[in-house]
Simulated assay, not measured.
Amino acid sequence: MTFVEKGPDDLLGEMQKALEDWQPTPSRLLSAKYRHELSSMGVEAEDKSLVKTHVFAQFYDSILEPAREGVPPPQAALSREFKLKEHVSRQSEAISFLITDEIVAFGERIIEADEASGRTFASHYGIDLSDGKIKKSAVDQFNSYVSTLPMKPGSDQLDSGHIFKLGNDWWVCATPACDLQPGQNTIAFTGSSNELRPFTALQLLPIKPEELENDHINSGSCCFVHDQNTGKVICLGLRSIPDEKKPATQKVTWRTFLAKDQGLISDGICKIVQLKLTDSTVEMPEFKGTVIAKLRYEYALNYIQRVGASVSRIGLGYAAYPSGDAV
């Protein structure tokens, strides 16, 4: 939208001047194009995505009865909420897929216009990536953006990929999402509970910025999360950098926890019971886990697989060389 005084005949020319003066970033232009395509083609794309009526009849049937018989109403409501969120995500992805080509073509036109103007569009961001410190911060924030989902206030259900802190320790939930929903079969323990939900978590260790190199970033062991408490992006890895130089990279630290309230996260807090062995009993201290971030599914799956690789590693029966002077 452009406001001009009465008189000009070339209104599109005036709008172009306003856009050039505003200097929107390429990212904002792509976002505007996405909204435009969604508005102009959204109904058609929506019709195409909804044409398989059997699929959506089955979806609606699943949310009418969102959990197994016997699950308390609060947990059933959580299960229905999860299924609705999952449906919205899949439907949004399907609609976006149908309009992607137009947006990609528009992105190519942005690049062409930038080339014609002498590559000036990058300056619209107001970020000087030639500064090494700024560049590193931009890389950290970008890595966090591509690997984590936005956090929002309110209640949520503990899910694979949720990163939380217990005291000073960082953990990532590494149990598949299907085992975390209320009403599912209990894992790790016999019996069942309408209050407790067992889950596996993998311990993550903060990596000092000065120790982090590209080989570590691309190793598949690291993730980047935005800590809302500090306002900084933190790199978390499966092992410390000195330990990464050792060959046993499959060995990780994981534990079985119990989430109270069937894994309900309320205002960023999840009540967690940690199992602790003593000489003859098992202690079960309760903690408040502070949920910091949630990984996108493909990044969460990486950590789920790391737990499997850790418990199935071979070579534990090999003899070791003697240490020190005895070699």
Rank of each mutant, 00 (worst) to 15 (best):
D325N: 09
A300I: 04
P206V: 15
T278W: 06
Q228R: 07
G161I: 05
V252L: 03
R296A: 04
M41R: 10
H124K: 04
K288A: 06
S92A: 11
E93V: 02
W22F: 15
V4E: 01
D169I: 09
K152D: 01
V273N: 05
W170K: 04
G268H: 07
T200K: 12
H124A: 03
I127L: 12
D243A: 12
D243G: 03
S79G: 06
T249A: 03
G308F: 13
L277C: 01
Q75Y: 05
T53F: 12
G191I: 13
R313N: 04
A76H: 01
S240Y: 13
S130C: 10
L204N: 02
G183D: 05
C222T: 07
E69V: 14
D9Q: 14
L64T: 13
E115A: 10
H124G: 02
K52N: 08
D279K: 15
A67V: 09
S62K: 04
F189W: 11
E5R: 13
A248M: 15
S192I: 15
L204R: 00
L180Q: 07
F82Y: 15
Q16G: 02
L301S: 10
G161H: 00
L38D: 01
R296W: 10
K276T: 14
F82N: 05
A67Y: 08
S312Q: 15
G237F: 11
D227P: 02
K133I: 15
G315K: 08
D101V: 07
K33L: 09
F164V: 01
D215N: 02
V4Q: 01
G263N: 05
N185K: 14
